[in-house]
């Protein structure tokens, strides 16, 4: 880890040195790279504070327990709605969702678990915050409104198909 850090620091300082030298000597490619960096950074700085504050507020106010309590008990479409909510407040990506989903294997239906995995990819709130900040609300709304119904329908289809073929989620190792 430490060695990795020093490589990164060396890389960043080398880069900065190159850009600064390019400006001093009038080396055009280096100048352009520097301009790129500055204009991207300014764009980021305009949006990042909002995105992070919204995420912070979300983390403080969202109550995970409430959602978890309902997960697995409910059947039918309500189970899927809770799965979407639970997916929405999952922190981290798919690799966090897999173990969580697998730990629910006794309580919840397979199709609900599939919805949860998909939702933890599609509609995680912190990530959607970033998406809205950089891509606009229209982009996010289209994505959610199209993908969520499709996700539920295909999860039900896939879940039922696998259950019919006696599929079982493996016990945790």
């Amino acid at each position: 880890m430490k060695r990795n850090d020093s490589i990164k620091i060396a890389g960043v300082s080398g880069y900065l040195l190159f850009v600064i030298l390019s400006f001093v000597c009038g080396f055009n490619p280096g100048k352009e790279i520097g301009h790129n960096l500055v204009s991207f950074s300014i764009d980021m700085l305009k949006l990042l504070p909002c995105a992070f504050i919204l995420i912070g507020l979300f983390e403080v106010w969202a109550k995970r327990e409430t959602v978890e309590r309902h997960f697995g008990e409910e059947s039918g479409i309500r189970g899927h709605i809770w799965a979407l909510l639970l997916g929405g407040i999952t922190v981290g990506g798919l690799y966090v969702a897999f173990p969580v989903a697998s730990s629910y294997r006794k309580g919840a239906k397979l199709s609900v678990i599939l919805t949860y995995i998909g939702a933890s990819g599609i509609c995680r709130v912190p990530m959607a915050t970033f998406e809205v900040s950089f891509m606009g609300i229209k982009f996010t709304m289209i994505r959610l409104l199209v993908s969520l119904p499709l996700l539920i329908v295909s999860s039900i289809a896939l879940g039922d198909y696998l259950v019919k073929r006696n599929y079982m989620i493996r016990a945790e190792k």
Partner: peptide
């Protein structure tokens, strides 16, 4: 990027099996 995981395939397979 969010939904399809080729790199996470080994992990996912361990939890849910190849077919699923």
């Amino acid at each position: 990027l969010m939904m399809v995981g080729v790199l996470t395939y080994p992990i996912e397979k361990d939890y849910f099996g190849v077919q699923l």
